[in-house]
Simulated scan of single mutants.
Amino acid sequence: MIKESELILNPDGSIYHLNLKPENISNYIITVGDPDRIDSITKHFDNVEFKTQKREFQTQTGTYKNRRITVVSTGIGTDNIDIVFNELDALVNIDLETRKIKKEHQQLTFVRIGTSGSIQKDIPVNSFLASEKAIGFDGLLYYYESDEFLEKGIANKLQEHLNLHPHKATPYVVNSSKTLLNHFTKDEKVFKGITGTNVGFYGPQGRVLRASLQDENFIDELTSFKYQDYKITNLEMETSGIYGMSKLLGHRALSMNAIIANRETGDFSNDPLQAVEDLIIFTLNKMATI
């Protein structure tokens, strides 16, 4: 039996942070960082059967083209991903009344819809990018037993290439779901790449306002990194956590990125809202046909 201090429930029996009960969610889940993006997705649904919000975690469940889909906002960062993915997994794989792990494992399908900045000239603004692999600079996975699915070859090469300061977290690399990647990249307009997940938006992504950087060449070093046929294509703040927690808990996940900025060319989308809207429609249609 899992202790009350470890699996925390609200007085109504819902799970603590997400305020959800098992019947409130589908096995097909879209995650977004921004709670305001939820309505931008569910406005396309045929119906919405359930809504709730607690803190930055908003959830809506409904139907799109006969596919029951849940949309959850995670907020920014892999710390929030740790909360969201553990609690969503608990809803389907732990009996909340007995506090015991279920004998039959239930797999969830996660697709992230997010915005991202490219660090390669050939990944233009307003394009879609599916994250084939994610590099985590956040350290989250090192709090779990996770060695069996980490891509150590590329991680070791990156560590050598970057010559990271010893106080920074060692990078880890996790693959997306091959099944989802193949399904979402049949369309030629979707790029595939390696997504770097950073622990912040400014310093960790090489932006300078008033605070100086410990390594002012960090982004250039990421851009120049190559491993076999792979290169780092874009930066954001959740994907490594999504992939890592999904692998740990036996789920499948894919991160879909609307590229709204190119750090190499200095370009920014002339209509980022439309870029995200296009990705939403694309993703919903793909999820309806999995």
Rank of each mutant, 00 (worst) to 15 (best):
T70N: 13
D79T: 12
T78V: 11
K100Q: 08
I69H: 10
R67E: 09
K100V: 06
T63C: 11
K65D: 01
E87M: 08
N80P: 02
V92Q: 07
A90G: 15
L91R: 06
R68W: 13
V71T: 04
K103W: 10
I83L: 05
L96V: 07
I83E: 04
D95V: 02
T70G: 13
D89V: 07
V72F: 05
T78F: 00
N66K: 15
T78A: 12
K102P: 04
I83H: 05
I81M: 02
I69F: 02
N86Q: 14
D79K: 01
I69Y: 00
R99K: 14
G77R: 01
I81G: 03
L91E: 10
G77H: 04
D89Y: 11
T63W: 10
V72M: 09
L88S: 13
R67H: 04
A90S: 15
S73T: 02
T98I: 07
A90N: 08
F85G: 04
K102R: 05
T74R: 05
L91V: 04
N86D: 15
N93A: 03
E97R: 13
T63S: 03
D89E: 10
N86E: 15
I69C: 10
I76H: 14
S73N: 02
E97A: 12
I76V: 13
K102Y: 08
I81R: 00
V71P: 14
T63N: 14
N66R: 11
G75L: 13
G75E: 12
S73Y: 00
N86I: 03
K102N: 03
K102G: 02
N66P: 07
I94V: 12
K65L: 05
I101E: 03
V72G: 14
N93F: 13
R67V: 00
N86A: 10
I81Q: 03
I94H: 08
L91G: 06
T78M: 03
D89S: 15
V92G: 03
Y64D: 00
N86C: 10
L96C: 07
G75S: 08
N66Q: 11
I69P: 15
L91T: 03
K103V: 02
D79P: 00
A90V: 01
N66E: 02
I81E: 07
I76G: 04
I101T: 11
V84K: 11
N80G: 15
K103L: 04
Y64I: 01
E87R: 04
L88G: 13
K103T: 12
R67F: 06
N66M: 14
S73M: 09
F85L: 00
D79H: 07
V71I: 11
L88F: 06
K65H: 12
I81L: 04
I76D: 09
V84M: 08
N80I: 06
G77D: 00
K100Y: 07
